[in-house]
Design a protein around this nucleic acid. Structure first.
Lengths: 145, 145
DNA sequence: TTATAACATTATAATAATTCTAAGCAAAGA
DNA sequence: TCTTTGCTTAGAATTATTATAATGTTATAA
């Protein structure tokens, strides 16, 4: 979904988008690197002379509740955020730590409303491994997780 | 894999299993509730008069590195652990907070070594939603995440 | 059997991520 | 304008996890 469409979808609901929340959504739109709340905070601090960490967290919850962004819990202990809400898998390279988008065809859950009586609201398909870059860089100095 | 088989697999490798590590593995074997490190600690404290939190964390890393247990990062901010390492999906009910096992047939990644050049080491297929119990209990007092 | 090395465990401190709290601000409605 | 409601802020508090340093345990070899 385009940035404008997301902003509009809130307007249609009559939900006002504050400057700070707009800035967080825009940051995610411009940076498809699956940043953490902390990374967003550090970057916005420079543009916004005054913005607090709590506001970032609040904005992320707000945007997530309106299904404009999604949360990625692939990494232990911290959350990453993704502008892209269309279904796709995430891959965490345990060597370089980067999170990549991976498109996997034929997922039997895609589009389903329930499974075994469980109501599906969100899919979080994660894969852990080594990315192609790290695989080619060297096959030896592997850091066990 | 049976409990005895897991204990044996370490012996075969020549890796000794200390009392504390044995206790953590046994706890996970007896409690298929996907506990957190803290829950394991609280329970083992009562049986073991002396055991420290750090030992629990160390034991969990140890067992995970030997592929005897797996880590679940479905919930933001904290890790859960699972005795069962055979591939299956996990479902987090956002109303009651419980994590359930769900078997999904036909996953295109199951058994695969790579995807798009990415080396697959571990699959973490998570689903968020409402469990059947919470669905039947009431359809109204839903707590937004 | 002792000495030694290697590793495990402990308590505690430190760090990191997130949430809570209380006060101030700002927009919207009466 | 006054009031209400919700947002933002700074900072404190909480929670989960990891690091550190001292101590304990075990296995092996002199």
């Amino acid at each position: 979904m385009s940035f404008e469409a997301k902003v509009h979808s809130l307007k249609r609901k009559g939900v006002p988008l504050t400057t700070q929340r707009y800035a967080v959504l825009e940051y995610l739109y411009l940076n498809h690197t699956h940043p953490t709340a902390e990374e967003i905070y550090q970057s916005l601090k420079e543009n916004f002379s005054i913005i607090s960490q709590a506001t970032i967290y609040n904005a992320l919850v707000f945007l997530k509740n309106h299904s404009l962004i999604r949360e990625i819990t692939i990494e232990k202990g911290k959350a990453h955020f993704d502008y892209e809400i269309e279904p796709h898998h995430h891959f965490l390279c345990r060597r370089c730590g980067h999170i990549y988008d991976v498109h996997v065809e034929g997922c039997p859950l895609e589009g389903k409303k329930t499974v075994d009586g469980y109501k599906i609201e969100e899919l979080r398909p994660y894969i852990i491994g080594i990315c192609p870059k790290c695989l080619s860089r060297s096959g030896k100095n592997e850091i066990p997780q």
